[in-house]
């Protein structure tokens, strides 16, 4: 098994006084896709946000790349090589594509930033065509593309992606998941929260089922996909 690039140890977390995660222990293997699934309101997105410091951790420890990051603010985690892609509002609608990318790589040397922008344009040629367009005027699929490009600019060690296919037409959703797979093939570690359980687990290496703020399953994605009992109980898939 690959080295764990991130470890969550006995995490209890939530939003101010509302606790939503209970005694969570989780390891994220380097270079793999970890897919987090679960029923609505189970705490999937909270788990992802907790990894990035966007919630309040009451007790427990988060280790990233052998460094304790439990108390680090999000902007410091970004500098350590973590990228987060929100489910909604994941690009700056009032900034152009170029400005979005410049912001993402704001602390890179100018020549490196230009090189990185060229690289993401090679991966997503559509963005090059829209370089001076405001992100708010682009389609949902293009915005997801830009969101991933924003994440790629800093060449992070890990991508945390929150429900990238939410609200997208099936064809577009498929394309977005293919992009996620492509990112992983380029060597990026990915933690993906996905509402489309089957499609998500099919591209994943590791599957994590979250129910009521606790980890109910943690193992190979294929095994979780095969567990008809869990799928029927918690995920609304699998049939009788």
């Amino acid at each position: 098994m690959a080295r764990a690039i991130m470890k969550l140890e006995n995490i209890n977390a939530g939003y101010e006084k509302l606790q939503t995660l209970f005694d969570v222990n989780l390891e994220v293997p380097e270079g793999e896709i970890t897919v987090i699934v679960g029923p609505n309101g189970a705490g999937k997105s909270t788990l992802l946000k907790t990894m990035f410091g966007l919630t309040k951790v009451y007790t427990g420890r988060i280790v990233f790349d052998n460094k304790d990051i439990t108390k680090l603010p999000p902007h410091e985690r970004a500098k350590l090589g973590m990228a987060f892609i929100f489910q909604l509002e994941n690009v700056f609608a009032n900034l152009s594509v170029r400005e979005n990318l410049r912001l993402a790589g704001h602390d890179l040397p100018p020549d490196v930033l230009e090189e990185r922008i060229k690289e993401v344009f090679e991966t997503f040629p559509r963005l090059k065509e829209r370089v001076d367009q405001k992100a708010g005027t682009m389609s949902g699929g293009e915005r997801q593309m830009l969101a991933m490009a924003i994440g790629m600019i800093r060449k992070p060690k890990i991508f945390l992606i929150d429900e990238p296919t939410a609200g997208l037409a099936p064809k577009l959703a498929k394309g977005v998941l293919e992009n996620v797979k492509r990112l992983n093939e380029q060597g990026y570690t990915i933690v993906l929260v996905e509402q489309n359980v089957k499609a998500g687990l099919e591209i994943g290496d590791k599957g994590v089922l979250v129910v009521n703020g606790r980890i109910a399953f943690d193992g190979p994605a294929s095994e979780l996909l095969a567990r008809k009992d869990l799928a029927r109980l918690y995920l609304g898939v699998g049939g009788r």
Partner: peptide, 20 residues
């Protein structure tokens, strides 16, 4: 750009490494 981004969407600016 950082200022405009922090005004529009502070959490997103923060996760991109901007000290909002």
């Amino acid at each position: 750009i950082k200022m405009r981004a922090s005004v529009e969407n502070p959490p997103l600016a923060e996760v991109l490494g901007v000290n909002v």
